[in-house]
Design a protein around this nucleic acid. Structure first.
Length: 426
RNA sequence: GGUGAGGUGGAUGAGUGGCUGAAAUCAACGGUUUGCUAAACCGUCGUACGGGCUUAAACCUGUACCGAGGGUUCGAAUCCCUCCCUCACCGCCA
């Protein structure tokens, strides 16, 4: 959620940013509407506060008059207060309507893209921030897709997942299951080595938590929901982990805060179809290690670079070819100011698969979360939140199986072998 | 799930209708004193949103907030209702 500053002092920047997200003129009017409503809100509050002050003063007088036994005068004052009360009631009504409308609009306005975000409407317009320099790997004739490899080596079973739950809930078995666990452990160890504190959060969250990181109300339909208990299954560890510090005022010396966490992720992913959903490319439940940072606003973009390095290091160790995209305005998430996507090249499917998304949310989440720090002047200030996948498993598994296959088995990268306990799948 | 007791500022903890935004103590911060440490003494010490105010700081000032939301009253931390949460015991259970 944007702060009011974006609609008053930074209005031009806001308009320009929303245009980068391809907003039409009609929606852009909301910016002016919010500014107008906000100034109305201030006027209403001033009037309301003054009336309340009068009532408060009168009440104190009444108390004193009663003590002194001057009941007649007390009654007169009471009648005066009654007049103010009805005025207050009607002003409060206006005030509430005004605030609700502001809130309603604010929730519809996405984050303002960072100035470096390229314009564009669709994934084709994303900028290749770091290309893969070496030649793309070529597989031998007869190389298989990961879903065929899974069947050949008994690594995971989608049909069993369907029997037990439904489409998009893979069941891993044997070396496939061990590979899954090895990757999680490997990613967590790497994150810990990079200074991230490990968190094991709840997998179900309440509405306040989902609202704070921006999943509600925007992505309501994408989360699984337990009606009876009014809890949401997390779509990413970002949600519970970022919320660890919701409603807190941190000391500047405590920054940066670096957290990581492994969780399963649950996504309903309504509306996807075709080859994109084949095998592990898009599933309803997958495992992911997430890294989260709470940063001083002055350092958040340096922190973002550090996160890119971290994720790059993981992919290097897994010996997977990858590229980094800087998402264009039209493809960025609602809450993000700048997002880099990591894509690995699937040699068997001959296409790029997204395996990580690393974003700086600036104050968009912290404003909703009331997550602040006390700056050098002793004033409270919103800090910046960032997060990134490090990494998402399902597609990494797909890439590993496909790219490291040989005619007589699948090679496990050296970095992973201590975790799997085997060097080949055959 | 049942019964009982509770939810007050960074912490402990007073406060049962009227200068109580909230005593006191501790912690923290600034200062004085001091060979060092310690101690003592003085001071500061919640958040949000408004107004004075024109860009900002400082300062002054108003309103709201004592788990959340409603209600009673001229006036609510205090009384009433609903909900949430915590603790204890019982039940159930990995």
């Amino acid at each position: 959620m944007l702060t009011f500053n974006y609609f008053t002092n930074l209005k031009d920047k806001t308009i320009a940013g929303l245009k980068k997200r391809n907003w039409d003129e009609q929606k852009l009017q909301w910016v002016d509407e919010i500014a107008l409503l906000d100034s109305e809100r201030k006027e209403l509050q001033t009037a309301l506060d003054q009336l309340k002050m009068q009532v408060n003063q009168a009440s104190r007088q009444i108390g004193n008059l009663m003590k002194e036994g001057r009941h007649q005068e007390a009654e007169t004052t009471k009648n005066q207060v009654a007049g103010h009360k009805s005025e207050i009631t009607s002003l409060e009504e206006k005030f509430r309507t005004n605030k609700e409308r502001i809130q309603e609009l604010l929730l519809k306005i996405p984050n303002i893209p960072h100035e470096s975000v390229p314009p564009g409407a669709s994934p084709e317009d994303n900028e290749v921030f770091k290309a893969w320099k070496a030649p793309l790997p070529e597989l031998f004739p007869g190389a298989l897709s990961h879903w065929d490899l899974a069947e050949k080596y008994q690594l995971f079973d989608l049909k069993l997942g369907v029997k037990i739950t439904g489409a998009g809930f893979p069941l891993y078995r044997g070396k496939g299951a061990k590979l899954q666990r090895a990757l999680i452990q490997f990613f967590l160890d790497q994150a810990t080595a990079a200074g991230y504190e490990e968190i094991i959060p709840p997998l179900l969250v309440n509405a306040d938590t989902a609202m704070a990181t921006g999943q509600l109300p925007d992505k309501d339909g994408q989360m699984y929901y337990c009606e009876r208990d009014q809890l949401y299954l997390i779509p990413t560890a970002e949600v519970p982990v970022t919320n660890v510090y919701r409603d807190e005022i941190l000391e500047e010396s405590a920054l940066p805060i670096k957290l990581c966490g492994y969780t399963p992720c649950f996504r309903r992913e309504a509306g996807s179809y075709g080859a994109d959903v084949k095998g592990l490319n898009r599933v309803h439940q997958f495992d992911k290690v997430e890294i989260v940072r709470l940063e001083h606003p002055d350092h958040s973009y340096q922190a973002l670079d550090k996160m890119l390095e971290h994720v790059s290091g993981l992919l290097d160790r897994l010996e997977l070819p990858y590229r980094i995209l800087k998402l264009c305005g039209g493809d960025m998430g609602f809450t993000s100011a700048l997002t880099y996507d990591f894509e690995i090249f699937s040699a068997a499917q001959k296409k790029w698969l997204e395996v990580s998304s690393v974003s700086n949310f600036e104050t968009f989440q912290s404003n909703r979360m009331k997550l602040r720090f006390r700056n050098a002047e002793g004033k409270t200030q919103l800090l910046h939140t960032l997060n990134g996948s490090a990494l998402a498993l399902a597609r990494i598994v797909a890439g590993l199986l496909e790219n490291h296959q040989t005619p007589d088995g699948i090679r496990i990268p050296a970095a992973l072998q201590p975790y799997t306990g085997f060097s080949r799948i055959d």
